[in-house]
Every structure is written in C-alpha cells, then in structure tokens.
Simulated assay, not measured.
Amino acid sequence: MFKTLKEEIKAIKLKDPAARSTIEIFLCYPGFYALIFHRVSHYLWNHGFKLWARINSNWGRFLTGIEIHPGATIGKRVFIDHGMGIVIGETAEVGDDVLIYQGVILGGTTTNKGKRHPTIGKGVIIGAGAKVMGNITVGDYSKIGTGAVVLKDVPPNCTCVGVPGRIVKREGEPIKEVDLEHGNLPDPVSDVIKQLFELHYETDKQIKVLYEQHDLCLVDYVDGIEEELDETTL
C-alpha cells in the first residue's frame, strides 16, 4: 500500500510542474485523495462489502468532486489533475501511468449488465472535458483531446480529437514523455475548412480568368462585326 502511494506521489511530481513537495501533494491534491478512497472502496467491493464500498465511494465524491465507482479498475501511477467533475463507471478499466484532467467521463452507453464502460490503455492522456463512452478501447500511449467525444476504439499511439472523435495517427515510437500542449493537437475539422477556403480561392481565380477571356473574346467579336459593317457600307 505504502509503495503504491509513493509511486503515485512520484508520478504526480513528474506530470505536474505545480507540485512542489510531497507534503503539498498529500494535503492539497483531490485526485490523490480520490484514488486513496477508491483503493479502499475497490477492496471492499471485491470482498463482498458492496454497500460499504458505495458509502465510502460517496464520501470520496463529496470530499473531492471525483466520482469513481468501486467496481472500476484503476492501474498504478494514475494521476487525476484537478479532477472536479470526473466520472468513472463501474466496468471501466484504467491502465498504468494514465493522466486524466478535470471533467472527463468514462461512461456507459447501455443499461444492460456486463462490460459497458471503456478500457483505457497505459500511458494514455485524456484532456479536460473529454467523454469516452461505451465498451471501447483506447490503445496504449494515445491522447484524447480536450472536449472530444470518443465512441469508437482508438488504436495505440494515436491522437483522437473532435465531436465525434476523429483519429489522427502518429508514426514512430510510443510516446514516452508526457506532452501537455493540448493547443498543439491536430484538428481535422479545421484542416478540412482550410482546404475548402483554399479551393474556394482557387475557384475564384479561375472564374476571374474565364471572365477576362470572355471579355476579350467579346471585344474581338464586336470589333469583327464593326469591321464587317464598315466593309458593307463602303
């Protein structure tokens, strides 16, 4: 237990530049407290004390603003940054070294029992306000952009952004370092709009050229008619 807490404090220091000391993390980080509450609730849940597990979970939600169902499986060195409004459902599975920002929902899309919440691979980053819904899998070292709504599987080493979530593949080795520059995430919708503007600009240029050629042809045609009229008059 103490080894796990030590690993989680170390992970927070690595992922949060605002963390200045161990005592500050222990006293002031709601995400850290939420995971402690969840470890206890999960233990009670797995040993048949489901009501007590839910009661403990509700106390954790009251104190931290983070709701994690006791049945959810949370890996090691998970960091919940700020955390207010996070909801993690009963059958959700979160891998090791995952970074989750405030407002994230790992929710279900069916009322049937069984696996109905997402599986998050190791090293995944989930941006603020993102919604990952249903029995889907987010592959290892992928990133979910801020405000994305993910309804389909995301392969490993990918970035998913937008509503609904769109995958932008990333080549190369798995992401080993945490990249917090969410403003640099690719935006395929913006790229398409930019392409449409460029196409519109090129189309306008071509139409302008056609108008100019049409005017020249019209001038030549009028000049030809005037010359024929002059010859006829003579």
Rank of each mutant, 00 (worst) to 15 (best):
V192G: 05
A19K: 09
L216W: 11
T146H: 09
F2D: 15
I9M: 04
V149S: 12
D230P: 01
M133S: 00
V209Y: 10
D179R: 01
R54L: 14
K76I: 06
V150M: 10
Q206N: 11
Q206A: 13
T91C: 09
N58H: 13
L234E: 12
D220Y: 12
T73N: 08
P17L: 12
E202A: 11
K15S: 13
V94G: 00
L199N: 11
R20F: 10
D96W: 02
L180D: 02
I105K: 09
I9Q: 00
Q195P: 06
I207C: 02
V168S: 10
T22M: 03
D215I: 10
E231H: 09
I207V: 14
I12E: 00
W52M: 04
Y201H: 14
I207F: 06
D97K: 05
V149T: 13
T73D: 09
I193L: 15
V149L: 15
K13L: 04
I193V: 14
F26I: 03
V104R: 08
N135K: 14
M1A: 13
G172H: 01
F62N: 10
S41N: 05
Q213F: 08
Q213V: 07
V222G: 03
M1G: 00
L99C: 06
K115I: 00
S190I: 05
G165R: 01
E67Y: 10
W59F: 15
Y201R: 11
I207S: 03
T91I: 04
Y43K: 01
L180T: 01
A72G: 08
L44Y: 03
R39V: 00
S21C: 06
W52G: 07
D153S: 03
D153E: 12
S190G: 13
E181I: 08
N58V: 04
T73L: 06
K50E: 04
H42L: 08
P186K: 09
L14A: 09
K76A: 13
G139D: 08
I25D: 02
V78I: 07
L199I: 14
L35R: 08
K143F: 05
I25Y: 02
V189W: 10
K208H: 09
V104N: 05
L185Y: 12
E231G: 00
A130I: 06
H42C: 05
L218D: 13
Q102V: 04
F79W: 11
L35F: 03
